[in-house]
Amino acid sequence: MSTLSYAASDSATMLRRNLRHAIRYPSLTLSVAGMPLIFLLLFVYVFGGAMGAGIGGLGGGRTQYLSYITPGIVLMTLASGSITTSVAVCVDMTGGIIDRFRTMAISRASLLTGHVIGSVITTMFSTALVLGVAVALGFRPDAGPLEWVAAAGVLTMVTFALTWLSVAFGVFAKSPESASNLPLPLSLLPMMGSGFVPTGSMPSGLRWFAEYQPFTPMIETLRGLLTGTAIGHSAAVSAAWSAGIALVGYAWAKTRFNRARTH
C-alpha cells in the first residue's frame, strides 16, 4: 500500500476506536446536548412568552421565539461538542497510549484525524437530537429539501472548524480538566451574538462585538435556511470564519502535536 492509503486506513482505524468509545459511553454524546437543551427549555418556557412579544418583527408569542432561538441553540450544541473532543484528545495525549502510537510505523496525523472525524459524527448526532426536541416543542422549519441539505452542510462545516480548534485545545492542555475549560467560552458565544436576541437590541459596544463575532453569521445562515429569514452575506462570512478557524486549529494542533516529541 502507498503512504497515502496507509494514512487513510490508519485514520479509519482511529475513527473506529473513537466511535467505539462513543457507543460504549453514550452519556458523553448525550451530555453534549444537555446544556443546549436546558437553555432551550429555559428560554422557551420561562422567558419565551415575554421575549417573543418583546422582539420586534416576531409578532409575539412563545412559538415564534422558539423558532427564533433554535438556530442559536443548535450552534451552542456544536460548541458544546468541542468540550468532549478536547477532553478526549487530552486524555490520549497525557496517557501512556500516545507513546505506543508514536513508536509505531503509522501515519502520524491519523490519531488527530480520527478524533476530528469521530467528533464531527457524534456532534451531528447531538445536533439532530437537539433539533428533534425543538421540533417536538413546536418548531416548524419551512426549509425545503435543498435548504435542509445546505443547512446540514453549514453545520458540518462549522463543526469541522470548531473540532480542529478543540483538538488543538486538547493537545495544548496539560490535563483533561483544563482541556474541558478551554473550549467553554465557545458555548457561550452564541448568547453574545444573534442567537437569543437580535443584535440591534444590545448596547453599542456589545452590539459591535455581537455583529462581528463568528457565531452571528453562522446563526443567521442557519436561521435563513430553516426559517426563511434574509441570509445576505452571512453564508460567505460563515464560510470564511470556518476556514480560518479550521486552519488556525489545524496548524496549532499539528505544531503542538509534533513539538511534544522533543521532551
Binding site: 500500500m1 482505524t13 460504549r24 496517557g95 507513546d99
Partner: peptide, 27 residues
C-alpha cells in the same frame, strides 16, 4: 515494539479490542 513504564492500553476498549486495534494499525 515498546512497552513503556506507563500503561499504554486503551481502558475504554476490551482486551481483545485493544489487540485488534494494534493488528489494524499493523495492517
Amino acid at each position: 515494539g515498546v512497552t513503556g513504564q506507563f500503561s499504554a492500553v486503551d481502558d475504554k476498549l476490551t482486551g481483545r479490542e485493544n489487540l485488534i486495534l494494534m493488528a489494524d494499525l499493523n495492517h
